[in-house]
Computed example of a mutant assay.
Amino acid sequence: MDKNNRSPSKGSRNLGQLFLQLRRLERQPQQFGSAGSITPSEIHTIEGIGYEGAVLMNELATRLGVTKGAVSQLVVRLEAKQLVTRSAYPQDSRATLISLTDKGKEAYKVHEELHIQFYDQLRAELGQEEIEIFEKCIEKLNAMLQK
């Protein structure tokens, strides 16, 4: 906003448009290889689990910044799609480990490749100095949104 008349600047309007586009994208399921149609919250859960190993259910909730109940619902949906498996945690029978199946790992890889392709497109549009500024701005925006 302009400090003098407090009217929206071009930058704030563009930021608003960016947020609207991101919200629109967050509602649309996408195809991720043979894994089929996966919602953004599901693919971000897969990303939170990680490609290798397993993660405790409560740790996954912390990584995603959501409740254990929300993670539990997501895991049920991902199990039904055969993208994750649950197993007992050896040190505590009350805890549950979540890991990706082969199909889940494929979805993870496809999602990761989409991010790489998007960033490659961005690099083709921007110069090195612009990329550095963009990255710094994204870091600051993320920090502001986490407050």
Score class of each variant (00 low, 15 high):
F118G: 07
I116P: 08
T96Y: 08
P40F: 05
P90S: 15
Y51R: 09
F134N: 06
K140S: 11
E135G: 03
V75Y: 11
I98M: 05
H115D: 12
I116T: 13
H115R: 14
L60I: 04
Q121Y: 10
N14G: 02
I98W: 12
Q146M: 15
I98H: 07
G69K: 07
P8V: 05
K3C: 00
R77Y: 07
Q21T: 02
E129F: 04
A61R: 01
K68A: 08
S37K: 14
G11S: 12
P90Q: 11
L20Q: 07
H44L: 07
Q121E: 14
E129D: 13
D102K: 03
Q21H: 06
E59I: 08
E112T: 13
V84R: 03
D92E: 01
S41Y: 02
E59D: 11
L114P: 00
I43R: 13
A61Q: 05
Y108S: 03
R86N: 07
N142H: 08
E129A: 15
K68H: 07
L15P: 01
E135K: 03
I98V: 14
N58D: 14
S93M: 14
G104Y: 13
R27L: 09
L141S: 14
K3H: 09
E129V: 09
K68F: 11
R123I: 01
K147R: 11
S93K: 15
R23Q: 15
S99V: 01
A88L: 01
E47L: 10
D120M: 11
R123Q: 15
I46P: 01
Y51S: 03
I98K: 04
E139S: 08
V110D: 14
L25V: 00
Y89F: 09
Q146N: 06
E113I: 08
R24H: 10
T45W: 00
G127K: 13
A80R: 12
L126Q: 12
Q21M: 03
R94H: 05
S9Y: 11
E59Y: 05
L97W: 04
R6L: 13
K68R: 11
Y108T: 04
E52C: 05
F134A: 14
L56H: 11
H115C: 11
K3E: 12
C137K: 14
I138Y: 07
T67K: 02
I131R: 11
N5T: 01
E112G: 05
